[in-house]
Amino acid sequence: MSSILFIDTSASPYDVIITRAEQVVFNSRDHQTMSEVRDLPIIVNYAFRQIDITPADLTLIAVNVGPGGLSSIRSGVSFANALSFSLKIPVAPFSSFEMMGHELTAETDLPVLGTTRGAGKNVYACLFTADQPTVMCYGIFAEVVQELTADLDSFAVIGTHRAEIQALGLTQQIWDSERTKGTLPAMLAQTDLLNSRQRTYPQIAHPINEQTLETAL
């Protein structure tokens, strides 16, 4: 029976979900005491005290590798890699943009343009289309948005720059999702994607940064 630990530390509060046979048996959002905790090990240890599953029952660890807060993403990825190593089970990386895209697939068929902050005037941006590989870019905000959307008639926006994208004066039709990020439950049904990403030591998950856009997933 599959038991999966899902980890998202891209932003505060951190999210931890554990599923068993595709049913959620723990969701940190249901536990008020965990909402202010910024230490992932505390949340995960708390989770295993609440349920009748032990770490040894896990069959997969799925972890958000970003982009997001630099240190917070590295915390989640370090934890996921080491738990994978110690339990000898696979780790499967997914991105903040896949979380954004899958968040909106029930509401729209439009391609989804997601953005998160980068260093200085740079942003991470991604064009997400269901069942197609995601295309991620890093660079100056207006330049990457225009590059990713040049061939589109219309698209949806999600992320931290929705207002700025709409203020760029682009000719395309833009649907505002009114959301700043995706949520972890959006990944629960993505078993095919996660199975295709499984890696075991010496292969590990790597955080997405400007140097690893093409290799992290």
Binding site: N45, P55, R74, S75, S78
Partner: peptide, 15 residues
């Protein structure tokens, strides 16, 4: 954070 999260996860996995 890298060392601490790694150690915590190793400890959890190994009990």
């Amino acid at each position: 954070l890298v060392g601490l999260n790694t150690a915590s996860a190793l400890g959890l996995g190994w009990g």
